[in-house]
Simulated assay, not measured.
Amino acid sequence: MDAPTEEFHAFFDRYYADLSRFAYLLLGDSEGADDLAADALVAVWRRWESVRAGGCPLTYARGVVAGMARTRLRSLMRERRRIALFWSHRPDRVDDPDVSAVLDVRDALARLPLRKRACVVLRHAFDLSEKETARTLGISVGTVKSQTSRGIAELERMLAPARAGSDRAYGTVRALRAGPAGRSGW
């Protein structure tokens, strides 16, 4: 290995945990912090020669982490505002949703593979057509149909054990299948 590569590896080994902890304190999310620290170190690696020549690679890396955290937090805030705006203007919104049922459905959604989850959410939470969903995700309409159908079936299976304690969560998935008119406030 050449000296700059070895030097960067030593830098990575020494400061990754510190940069991850810094990211965690900025974001408040340990999983996101690890990803952010890794992304920052990739950015540092790409400019390693000039960063090293500057004499303060840790300072530079901390600046990259701070900038990426700021970008991520701004993105999250914009997303929260869009969601709040979306729900505040829905005529069929539920004023007092069953919180445990909503949490059950969200947990089940999180366990779906990303493509199925995206299809289910875009089709049923955002009322996109199959064609709009396909265009958004860059997949075929047939894939949207199959992934949505399979995703709803998996949600029903995951939530079926919860039926004994809460028919509401299972009903929420059935309402997803029915479309916007029958949807609960998830």
Rank of each mutant, 00 (worst) to 15 (best):
E130A: 04
Y170K: 06
P113M: 15
M158W: 13
S149K: 07
V173G: 01
G142R: 06
P113H: 13
A160I: 09
R72D: 05
E132F: 03
V173F: 12
E156G: 05
D92W: 15
E130T: 05
R150G: 04
L128F: 12
G142N: 04
G171R: 11
L159Y: 07
G151V: 00
L73E: 06
A134I: 03
T143L: 02
G151N: 04
E156P: 04
A153C: 01
V99M: 08
P113S: 14
I139F: 09
P97C: 07
G142V: 04
A164K: 15
A84C: 11
A108W: 00
R93M: 06
A69Q: 06
T143M: 05
S75W: 10
D98F: 14
L109W: 03
A118L: 11
T172E: 10
S129F: 00
V141Y: 10
G171I: 09
A84Q: 07
A69Y: 05
E132K: 01
D95K: 12
R135D: 11
V102F: 10
V144E: 03
G165M: 08
V99F: 09
R117V: 07
L76Q: 06
G67W: 05
T143S: 10
L73C: 08
V173C: 00
V99T: 11
P97M: 02
L114S: 14
